[in-house]
Design a protein around this nucleic acid. Structure first.
Lengths: 128, 128
DNA sequence: CCGAATCCGAAACGATACTG
DNA sequence: CAGTATCGTTTCGGATTCGG
């Protein structure tokens, strides 16, 4: 399968791929989507499980995904506050669409590291 | 298929997805990979077909992809210079892994636009 | 024709402190 | 608990200029 059932033959106009990458190509979106694929999660749960993300980036990223219709934000106005995030059907379809890429990454990361090492060891390797 | 054959259950350690996105999650990499999936291309051909990319970003992105073993760079030292770029087998497998995401994008972009419009029209929409 | 080098503005990101 | 506000740093990316 070299040219069928893919995202198009690339020869078409300005290409929508950029818009998708502008949405999920950031540092955290796909991580959050992936974690939410296991079920609804609360803010602090995500904060812990994504690990490395700051409060700010978690908030910002969640807002963006909510705006794009990838997930829903449900507020229970009690004390203490309780906010739950959950994938929409579109969010789950996105998760499935990104699965092959995540698979690919785990399968090829070692090879990529080797390629980089080989490249950097070449006589004509770039200085920095 | 809700949970099988995907990139893992998300519960594992710090997650490699970030490294992949650090590689192909930028603005241009996937576009270039997509264009190269049709066969080898020269620098100026890519410059024209990607359209919107600057010389600098084309050079930088191509170098990165070459370093990661996604594509090869072949120089024919003649006048005028002739440099050809071509996907490696790993590059082609990457192209296939990203195909579902590109498919998804073309299928859902309109719906996302609608979701954004609806979100922005909500009474509690963010100011900016 | 194919790039490298430099400069600069814009945007992303992170740490911290504060609020209901 | 679940954010918001502010600040400083880092990175991205475009324009321009120069070299082989």
């Amino acid at each position: 399968m070299s040219d069928t059932a893919d995202g198009g033959p690339a020869s078409e106009e300005p290409c929508r791929a950029r818009e998708v990458l502008g949405m999920v190509g950031d540092k955290w979106s796909l991580l959050i989507v992936r974690h939410l694929s296991e079920g609804p999660r609360r803010f602090t749960e995500l904060k812990r499980s994504v690990e490395g993300i700051s409060q700010r980036m978690l908030t910002v990223t969640l807002r963006g995904l909510e705006r794009d219709g990838i997930l829903t934000r449900t507020v229970r106005n009690v004390m203490p506050p309780h906010v739950s995030y959950e994938l929409t059907p579109m969010g789950r379809s996105l998760r499935e669409a990104t699965a092959p890429l995540l698979e690919w990454s785990t399968a090829h990361l070692a090879r990529i590291g080797a390629a980089r090492a080989a490249y950097d060891a070449r006589p004509d390797a770039p200085p920095a």
